[in-house]
């Protein structure tokens, strides 16, 4: 007999199973369209050709290198800013701030996480761009550096909240032992709490990287969208996400160009999967305190 209890249980199980179906669906869809692309355009061209020029009149080229480098560059720039600032702010929140300050700061950081990416991109155009142009005497501040600054701001809430959790999960006895040996607060943070929280902090860094790599609107709006191999942070760049977002509206269904954009998306998906798996790995190292 198929009882009501059983039915409800299966219903919820199906809900949970849907997540696997969706993830699998996304991957299979991307893979299918990517394979179609490689039937039309060689694997070699995709990875060895530098420039993405699908609308070139004589011979279109579909090289992913320039945008891959752009994505990595903007992400590295963002992490150079966001990792130290984020970990520092998390250490402050967990180890230094009074409970009162913490109670105010944490919701504020959450509010930052809630600001839509398109609004951050807008501020990149009207605020950060002109500021960079002035400071570095450039004709335009719409470049990779601008994108890095904005992505750093967007990755900060993730890095802060996950690292703060990591700091707070270190048992109090570690700190007490350190203090009992005569270490100061700062020494305790640097030599005891930070190393103990390190796996969790690496999770935070990975999630921050994932956020930066996959972010679309801010880089689309604030980095200038020039499809060339970047040479410096003052160059205008087009990341993988920005290329997909700016071109998919104009392609013909089923064309080389159409499948090409899914191939870029597939590569992006694989990068984010790798970053997530690394986060998972560090997370499994963190559990010993729980």
């Amino acid at each position: 007999m198929f009882s009501k209890e059983r039915f409800v249980q299966y219903l919820f199980f199906v809900c949970a199973l849907m997540t696997v179906v969706i993830l699998g669906g996304i991957f299979i869809m991307l893979l299918y369209k990517t394979l179609k692309f490689f039937e039309l355009v060689g694997l070699g061209e995709f990875f060895l050709e530098r420039i993405w020029k699908p609308s070139a009149y004589s011979k279109p080229t579909y090289g992913v290198l320039a945008m891959l480098v752009s994505t990595l560059m903007v992400t590295v720039g963002a992490m150079v800013i966001a990792i130290p600032v984020g970990i520092g702010a998390a250490a402050y929140l967990s180890e230094v701030a009074s409970p009162h300050v913490r109670e105010w700061l944490k919701p504020l950081v959450e509010l930052l996480a809630g600001v839509p990416s398109v609004a951050i991109g807008f501020l990149g155009i009207v605020l950060v761009g002109p500021f960079l142009a002035k400071v570095f005497h450039l004709s335009s501040g719409i470049n990779a550096l601008n994108g890095s600054i904005l992505l750093a701001i967007m990755a900060l809430p993730t890095i802060i909240s996950v690292s703060e959790d990591a700091f707070s999960s270190v048992p109090l006895s570690y700190r007490e032992a350190s203090c009992a040996l005569g270490a100061t607060k700062w020494q305790t943070i640097v030599w005891v709490t930070l190393p103990a929280a390190l796996p969790g902090i690496l999770v935070a860094v990975m999630l921050g990287i994932g956020r930066a790599v996959g972010e679309t609107m801010t880089v689309l709006m604030a980095t200038g969208n020039a499809k060339a191999m970047p040479h410096s942070f003052f160059d205008s760049v087009a990341t993988m996400t920005a290329v997909i977002a700016s071109e998919i509206g104009e392609v013909d269904y089923g064309s080389e160009h159409y499948y090409g954009l899914f191939a870029v998306g597939c590569l992006l998906f694989l990068i984010s999967l790798l970053v997530n798996l690394l986060a998972d790995y560090f997370n499994s190292k963190m559990r010993r305190y729980a």
Partner: peptide
Amino acid sequence: SIRNLAGVPSIVYGLF
């Protein structure tokens, strides 16, 4: 799957 879905870039959801 849930953790990985959370990390999938929003533009990839757009493609899907």
